[in-house]
Design a protein around this nucleic acid. Structure first.
Lengths: 199, 199
DNA sequence: GACCAATCGGACACCGGCTCCCGGTTCGGA
DNA sequence: TCCGAACCGGGAGCCGGTGTCCGATTGGTC
């Protein structure tokens, strides 16, 4: 999204083009959230009331469209974490964030796909947004660890991985997501009980 | 796999047919383990040195072939769990089984896909094998709970879900799988520490 | 109002995967 | 050895999805 209202050449988009572009973004946002990356482009075009060509003119590939949408979301998530890290009750805030994250991404398949995308998805494109998210998460985690509420050997990447794991569990539909998150959250606390399982 | 050596009509398979069938099963076993359900049938046929038609003659659909292979595996897993449940040190055995399960399925994409297959995959076909697995897991879990080593509010389905979660985490490749399993295992222990995160 | 270029839309080429089918081959009983 | 039936191989058809192309349309400027 180098520029929302002008082409690469700098010439402003025609009114209809601008309208269509906005409409595609708006619809894609919703459809991706509902269906995830798996939704065909045709579906988005149809729902937006435009032709497939129009979608591809504004976004060269399906991934580009997806990235344009998800970046915003990742950044906002990171921002939330960062703000929580600045507040009090780091432990509470951390676990609350974790649960909220799982809940949100359960309801938003786009967010799920973005988080779960391991090797796939143009990582250069999301790199910056990803960075914001991980930094925010890292800040919050560090605070919670300082407060002795979370195992000190966990990294932000670990926590992200645990979130993805919880999401996969939720997606299974074979167990209460709340319970699963509870188990994982309990496991993230410092090793207080008697023993840990040995390899 | 109603009958490995005869057609539905009961007539014994010709020698070459039997040979090919066995070869396909053998190769498919390996290829599915390496690549998971995503591998194209052509690949299996090629590696088995037969035509695609031959594969489809013996197994009406790709799923059928997959199921024929995975059933055995699921049953064997259940059997292992059942035997562990009969032995001593239920807690140790349970967590050991959990870790082993995650490790095995990390190395065997077929097993992963079978476990993770939520809505998909002919569930009628795998129902019996699935049953064996869940029963074995249930036995082992119950013993570990009796021994006070596992939270009493977890069900076998919950544990299976947690396993799938760990597998998703491992697949991410962004964190040490051993650590992730450690976190989840710790979380499955009875709630001994101070508090659990509230919703 | 008229003109030109930007934009639209959707038909279409292309691709990869599953499945069916048929001409040719091989088995195995007599 | 010979023959019919069973079996083989892989090409063809189909399907769903992505991305491209070009005639038709529309915006905005003179």
């Amino acid at each position: 999204m180098t520029s929302a209202d002008s082409t690469v050449a700098g010439r402003p988009l025609r009114a209809d083009a601008r309208r269509n572009r906005a409409r595609v973004l708006e619809v894609a946002q919703q459809v991706f959230a509902e269906e995830g990356l798996a939704v065909p482009i045709d579906e988005i075009a149809r729902r937006a009331g435009v032709g497939v060509g129009t979608v591809y003119r504004h976004f060269p590939t399906k991934d580009a469209l997806f990235v344009a949408i998800i970046q915003e979301r990742l950044r906002s998530v990171g921002e939330v974490a960062r703000k929580l890290a600045e507040g009090p009750a780091a432990g509470r805030a951390f676990f609350g964030f974790f649960e909220r994250m799982v809940r949100d991404a359960s309801l938003n398949k786009a967010l799920f796909d973005a988080l779960a995308a391991g090797g796939g998805l143009n990582q250069e494109l999301t790199a910056e947004a990803r960075q914001v998210m991980m930094t925010g998460l890292g800040d919050l985690l560090a605070k919670a660890q300082e407060a002795g509420e979370v195992r000190p050997d966990l990294t932000a990447a670990d926590v992200k991985t645990l979130i993805v794991g919880c999401l996969s569990m939720a997606r299974q539909g074979t167990a209460d997501p709340g319970l699963m998150v509870g188990v994982v959250c309990a496991g993230m606390r410092p090793v207080s009980p008697v023993r840990t399982p040995e390899a």
